[in-house]
Simulated scan of single mutants.
Amino acid sequence: MSQALSPLDAVLEEHGLTLQQLTSLGEVDLEWVSRHIAEGQLAPQRHGGEWRFSSAMLLRVRRIAALERDFEAVPELAALVADMQEEIDGLRRRLRRAGLE
């Protein structure tokens, strides 16, 4: 049984965040986002010729930026840790859906 999206999440998933919204909400700058996209650590969607970012991508940006800032992690390591956190979150969701957690 899937959980219903909030109205805000539904809009985000349909339209996504703009680059400006992502930088503001993620508390990062344009250069930071561009560098992480170029290095393959962020994968935005193209929408009408501009990048769009999901709510999951916003969470990823916040995680990577916090790891870089708080632990002085290099971007590649921060992205790897974010990958592992995303995998753990997904496994926990599956356990909850199966009634095992």
Rank of each mutant, 00 (worst) to 15 (best):
E86C: 06
V74K: 15
S24I: 13
Q45Y: 11
M57R: 14
Q3H: 00
P75Y: 11
A10D: 09
E68N: 04
S24N: 11
P44K: 01
Q20Y: 13
L8V: 08
G49S: 07
L100K: 09
L22C: 05
E87L: 06
L25N: 05
S55G: 12
F53P: 00
L12C: 09
P7D: 12
L58M: 04
L5M: 07
A79P: 01
G99D: 01
L25F: 08
L42C: 05
S54T: 13
P7R: 12
W51K: 10
E87A: 01
A4Y: 02
R60T: 10
R96T: 15
W32D: 08
L95D: 08
P75I: 10
R52F: 14
E31Q: 15
D83T: 08
L25G: 01
G48H: 07
L12M: 08
I37M: 07
T18N: 07
E31N: 15
V74H: 14
W32H: 06
R96D: 15
A66D: 09
Q41P: 14
G49V: 10
V28L: 03
V28A: 01
R92V: 13
Q45T: 12
S2H: 00
Q41F: 15
L77R: 08
L19M: 11
H47Q: 15
Q21M: 04
T18G: 05
Q3G: 00
D9N: 11
M1W: 00
E87V: 06
I37Q: 09
E50D: 12
E13G: 01
H15I: 05
L12T: 09
G90T: 07
G40P: 14
R63H: 01
H15D: 13
E87P: 01
S34K: 14
